[in-house]
Amino acid sequence: MKKWKSNLDEMQEQKLLKIEHNGYWIAFWGLLIVILAQVVLTPDELREHLPRIMTGEWIVFMVLSLYLGFACMKNGIWDRKLQPNAKTNLLASLLAGGAVAVFQVLYSYFLFHRLVVALGVAGVSALITVILCFLALTVTARATKKQQEKLEEEPEDSAEEQ
């Protein structure tokens, strides 16, 4: 099959990759904000239909997240700065738990107007988030390390073929 010739030179190709990279993150954070806004702003009478209302956004958000996660794992890539170890996984999980706690305190207080209830809901949500995040990060870190080891194995023909 004839390969289509690119109209871009190397610099333009890199610029396009950067633009696509920015587009990805705009879509990712935009969808997350939209999902959270829908949770907060949906009127009480429509609240029971909330899962159906935000199905589309949720599916696209999960596809984006899973694609990024699995593509990185397949290529043995974890993070630019962080190492896939228990310490950083715990730190990231605590950050996620903290973010959920802040959101839940505000949201629950907005719904129930009782600080004790809001703090209780936020505490439980944060704890569940920390546990689930830590488990997910531990499993994916292990898989990424395994893939890194596989990719770093010297191929048999690398010292032959002279």
Partner: peptide, 8 residues
């Protein structure tokens, strides 16, 4: 200062 896969 790169990975083995890059050299490969």
């Amino acid at each position: 200062g790169v990975t083995r896969q890059t050299i490969g």
